[in-house]
Simulated assay, not measured.
Amino acid sequence: MTRTSGQRPRLLAIIELGGYPNLTGLYQRLGFDAEILNSQRKAQAALKRRLPDVIVAEYNFQSDFRDRSSNLETLMARLQRSPEVKVICFYQAEYQHKLEQLRQRFPVFAALPLPVTEDQVEQSLRAALAEAAVAEV
C-alpha cells in the first residue's frame, strides 16, 4: 500500500445504486480512512487527488453503453498504472459472465455477488489488507 508508517489505509467506496448495507461503520472499525462517493465521475476526480489502497465499487452492466459494457471499465482502465490498489466489486449474479469478461482484462481483487453481507465484505477487506502487508515486507 502506498502510505507511510502510522498512516491509516485509504478506502474509496463508490455507491451508485446501493441496495446493500451501509458499510461505513465496517470501514471505520477496520481502520480505514474512507471516502464515500456516489458516481464514477466523482471517483475519477478523487483519484486525481489521492490514490486509495482499496476501492469498493459496484459492477453495473449496461448494454446501452457504446464503447464499454459497465461503469467499472473506466475506473479499471485508470488503475492499470496502479496495480497495488485492490478493487472489490459487488455485482448482480445474472451478470457474472459479463464481469468475468472484464476480469480477463483488468485485475479485480474480489467480486461479491449481491446481496452482500457485512461479513463477506469484511473478509475481502481483511484479505486485501493482509496481501498489502505482505507486499510491504
Results as ranks from 00 to 15, higher is better:
S39L: 01
Y59C: 07
F90L: 12
A13S: 09
R49S: 09
E131F: 14
Q104G: 13
E122F: 03
L26P: 09
L12V: 00
S5A: 15
L79N: 09
D53H: 03
A43F: 02
A127K: 15
V56W: 00
L11D: 00
F109P: 00
A127E: 15
P115C: 07
R3G: 10
L51E: 06
C89H: 07
V121S: 06
Y91A: 11
P83K: 09
M76C: 09
N38W: 09
V108C: 04
I88V: 15
A57D: 12
R10A: 07
V116Q: 04
A132K: 08
L129M: 15
A13K: 11
F109I: 04
Y20A: 11
K98P: 08
P113C: 00
E122W: 04
D33Y: 13
A111L: 02
K98V: 01
A130N: 14
D64L: 12
Q92I: 09
R50I: 01
P115L: 06
P107M: 00
E73H: 08
Q44I: 07
P52L: 01
Y59F: 15
E94Y: 12
G25C: 10
I14L: 04
Q92E: 14
N22E: 15
R3T: 05
S63C: 10
G18M: 06
R126K: 15
S69E: 12
